[in-house]
Amino acid sequence: MSTDSLVMVDHHCHGLIRTDLGREEFEQLATEATTPPAPGTSHFDSPVGLAIRAHCAPVLGLPPHAAPGGYLARRNELGCAEVARRLLAAAGIDTFLLDCGFRAADLLTPAEMERIGDVSTREITRLEAVLESTAWEGAAHLADGFGATLAAECAESRSVGLKSIIAYRHGLDFDPARPGRREVLAAADAWLRAGGRVEDPVLLRHALWCGVDLGLPLQFHVGYGDPDIVLYRNDPTLMTEFIRAVSVPIMLLHCYPYHREAGYLAAVYPHVHFDVGLAVSFTGPSAERVIAESMELAPYTKVLFSSDAFGLPELYLLGSLLFRRGLAATLARWQDDGHVDAADVARITSLVCGGNALRVYGLDVHG
């Protein structure tokens, strides 16, 4: 089927950076590393760096594979707003589901994203951000009133889903049980006295279960991310008992290198869905193989598209372009081998690129 007719729903992404960028700032946004590159090297020397030069440079009026210095000079010549308009238009995404819970002051708001990208946007509420924003109300409120606060926040922002970063703050090997009030009070009191971000697993579980009570799709960061995670504790099968205990849609994000494990969970639990979002842009030339592996076992009604783009409009374009190419190549092989026909290819493509997100998040075609 023609990709021009697809409804593309990016079911997990972030806003764009507000300002023009120097080379160091750009490179830091184009990596999950939190440190500068090794001496004598560049973050352009990576799969995502190759992909930016190959696929984004022509959209900005440069030849493919333009040198990094020339690419960044052209970027600053056009200005961040024009770069964003061009790259978002080329991405062909119709709806963004935006997680605004991280570095919100540095990024465009959902309304600004709608205007610059001519797209529909809806919000995903990050549980830990709401929890930390209510610390001033005290331990008793966190124990007894957080659920109501979360519900009010979701209603105000018209959120269509929730997100947890318990993978960063603790790991996915958490106790699946809902914590008792005394546990929550003790953990909240200790956290409020110590300060800092929420890392106590009792409070993180309390936020999760308050989210479950709202019945919205619940996103989890899984697998690949910045060095704040411990990767082996990000295997989604570690949260199997929690998955068994709930019935809300569970949305496993990114998943690499555990995308096969995520596919297994999606195959055996009716409410589990997943994507390979972040991995698509960051594996660049190898994205097709990652996409094919993610579809080895999972029902195609459980696979979604996301870019996890943060800050750089390049990541929206790469996420969409590389995903569509990788999916098309995978399905073409299936068709050549007689596993599917043209109608199957069209239906699978439509569901994975947007239809599954429309159904699970309760959206209409206009977001």
Results as ranks from 00 to 15, higher is better:
1 M>T: 13
1 M>E: 07
3 T>S: 15
5 S>E: 15
16 L>M: 07
21 L>Q: 09
21 L>S: 08
22 G>S: 12
22 G>E: 14
24 E>A: 15
34 T>V: 14
34 T>E: 15
42 S>E: 06
58 P>E: 02
59 V>G: 02
61 G>I: 10
72 L>E: 06
75 R>T: 02
77 E>K: 09
77 E>S: 05
79 G>A: 04
80 C>P: 02
83 V>R: 04
85 R>A: 10
89 A>G: 14
89 A>K: 13
92 G>A: 10
93 I>R: 05
95 T>M: 07
97 L>I: 13
99 D>L: 00
101 G>C: 11
104 A>K: 11
105 A>R: 12
112 E>I: 14
114 E>A: 15
116 I>Q: 06
118 D>I: 00
123 E>T: 14
126 R>P: 06
127 L>P: 03
132 E>R: 11
132 E>L: 01
139 A>K: 02
140 A>P: 00
140 A>C: 08
145 G>S: 08
157 S>H: 14
162 L>R: 08
163 K>V: 08
164 S>V: 09
169 R>N: 14
169 R>G: 01
171 G>Q: 01
171 G>F: 00
174 F>V: 13
174 F>Y: 13
179 P>V: 10
179 P>G: 09
180 G>Y: 00
187 A>S: 13
188 A>E: 09
188 A>W: 02
192 L>Q: 13
205 R>W: 10
206 H>F: 06
213 D>M: 07
216 L>A: 03
229 I>D: 02
230 V>L: 07
230 V>P: 00
231 L>A: 02
232 Y>L: 04
244 R>D: 14
246 V>L: 09
261 E>S: 15
261 E>H: 12
262 A>R: 03
262 A>H: 03
275 D>F: 00
281 S>G: 14
282 F>H: 12
295 M>R: 10
297 L>N: 04
307 S>W: 03
308 D>E: 13
315 L>A: 01
331 L>M: 11
333 R>T: 14
334 W>D: 12
336 D>G: 09
345 V>D: 05
346 A>Q: 12
354 G>R: 00
355 G>P: 02
357 A>F: 04
361 Y>C: 05
